[in-house]
C-alpha cells in the first residue's frame, strides 16, 4: 500500500511538472500566434525548452519576503494553493483504468476542494502587507465565492442527468453519446455556464481582476518572487487542467471515444484510439478555449463581474437545474 501511494505521489508530481511546462509553453505560443508574434523561439527548436529554462531561472532567483509581511502565512499561501490543486486531481479518471481514487462522491469532492483555493489567495494577499495585494485578495474573494455557485449548479445539472456523483459512473453513462449531444439544451447551458464560471474561478481573463495587471500591477501575488511565484503560477495552470478535465468528463464523455448510433464502422475506428488520447484531446481543447478567451477579451469591472454572476449566470443555472430535473424525471434524454 505504501508503495502504491509512493508511485501515485511520484506520478502526480511528475504530472504536475510536465503539465506546468507544457501548459505555460502552450499559453505563450497561443498568445503569440493570436498576437501575430512567434513567441519563444530561442531555447531549443521552436523554443520548446523555454519553460524549462524559466523554471531554472525561477528556482535560482532570490526569494524576497517584504518587510512587515506575516512570514508564516506568506510562506504558507503558495504551499496551500499547490496542495489544494493536488488534492483536486484525485478523483479524475484519466482513462478507463487510470484513476487515482474512484470515489463515489467525486464531483462533490472536486467542488469542495476547489472552494478552498480562495483561502490561499486571500492569505497570500493579506500576508504580503501590500495594499494592491489586499485589494486583489478582496476582489478574488468576492469573485470566487460568487462564481462557485454557478459552477456548483451546473455540476448539479449534470449530476441530475447522469444520476451519479462518481466520475467513472458519469463517464460510463456516456457510452452511447456524450452528454453534450444527448442532454439537450440543459447540458449545453450547463456547459457554457461551467466554462464561464470556472474561467472566473481560475482568475483568468476576462475575469482576472485579482491580478489585474493594469490596475493592481499583479494583485495578490505582487510581492511574490522566485519559486513561490512559480507555485502560484503552476497551480493556476494545474487548476486550469482540473477544470478542463472536469468539463471534459461531465460534458464531453471523458475518455469515451466519439460514438454515433449503434455498432457501426465509424465507432469501431474511434475505438482504436486509446482512451488516454481521447481524454487528453478533450482536455486540451477546453484549455485552448479558455486560453482563447484570455487573449481576446478585455477585463470586466468588479461590479460588472458580480452583475454577470448574480443577474445572469445564477438565475440561468437555477432554471437550468430545474429543466435538467424535468428531463431526468420524464426521461427525455436518450
Amino acid at each position: 500500500m505504501i508503495i502504491t501511494a509512493l508511485i501515485i505521489a511520484i506520478s502526480v508530481i511528475t504530472l504536475f511538472a510536465v503539465l506546468g511546462l507544457v501548459l505555460v509553453y502552450m499559453e505563450r505560443k497561443v498568445a503569440a500566434f493570436m498576437q501575430i508574434r512567434l513567441g519563444p523561439m530561442r531555447v531549443g527548436p521552436w523554443g520548446i525548452a523555454q519553460t524549462l529554462a524559466d523554471t531554472v531561472k525561477l528556482i535560482s532567483k532570490e526569494d524576497i519576503i517584504p518587510n512587515g509581511a506575516d512570514k508564516f502565512l506568506f510562506n504558507l499561501a503558495p504551499l496551500m494553493v499547490t496542495v489544494i490543486a493536488t488534492l483536486a486531481l484525485a478523483p479524475l479518471p484519466f482513462s478507463d483504468k487510470w484513476i487515482i481514487w474512484d470515489s463515489n462522491v467525486g464531483v462533490f469532492y472536486v467542488a469542495a476542494i476547489s472552494s478552498l483555493t480562495v483561502i490561499s489567495i486571500l492569505t497570500g494577499g493579506w500576508a504580503s502587507n501590500n495594499k494592491y495585494s489586499l485589494i486583489g485578495a478582496m476582489r478574488s474573494g468576492a469573485q470566487i465565492v460568487s462564481y462557485e455557485l454557478s459552477v456548483g449548479l451546473s455540476l448539479v445539472a449534470m449530476v441530475l442527468l447522469s444520476g451519479s456523483l462518481s466520475f467513472s459512473d458519469i463517464v460510463m453513462t456516456q457510452q452511447d453519446a456524450w452528454w453534450i449531444f444527448k442532454g439537450h439544451l440543459p447540458a449545453w447551458i450547463a456547459f457554457m455556464v461551467f466554462i464561464i464560471a470556472s474561467t472566473a474561478e481560475l482568475n483568468r481573463n476576462p475575469f482576472d481582476l485579482p491580478e489585474a495587471e493594469s490596475e493592481l500591477t499583479a494583485g495578490f501575488h505582487t510581492e511574490y518572487s522566485g519559486m513561490k511565484f512559480a507555485l502560484f503560477m503552476l497551480s493556476e495552470y494545474i487548476n486550469m487542467f482540473i477544470v478542463s478535465a472536469v468539463a471534459a468528463t461531465l460534458f464531453l464523455g471523458g475518455w469515451m471515444p466519439l460514438h454515433f448510433g449503434q455498432d457501426n464502422f465509424f465507432n469501431h475506428i474511434m475505438d482504436y484510439i486509446p482512451p488516454l488520447v481521447w481524454f487528453a484531446g478533450k482536455v486540451f481543447f477546453i484549455i485552448f478555449l479558455i486560453m482563447w478567451f484570455r487573449w481576446t477579451f478585455p477585463r470586466l469591472r468588479i461590479d460588472q463581474l458580480l452583475t454577470l454572476e448574480w443577474k445572469y449566470l445564477l438565475p440561468i443555472s437555477l432554471i437550468n437545474v430545474l429543466a435538467a430535473a424535468w428531463i431526468t424525471v420524464t426521461g427525455w434524454h436518450f
Binding site: 462522491v105 469532492y109 472552494s115 483561502i119 486571500l122 493579506w126 465565492v145
Partner: peptide, 20 residues
C-alpha cells in the same frame, strides 16, 4: 466532503473575509 464544503469552504472563508 460536507465538512470541507461547509466548514472550510464556507465558514472559514467567511471569517477570513471579515478579518480582511
Amino acid at each position: 466532503v460536507v465538512q470541507l464544503v461547509i466548514y472550510a469552504g464556507g465558514i472559514v472563508v467567511l471569517i477570513l473575509f471579515a478579518v480582511l
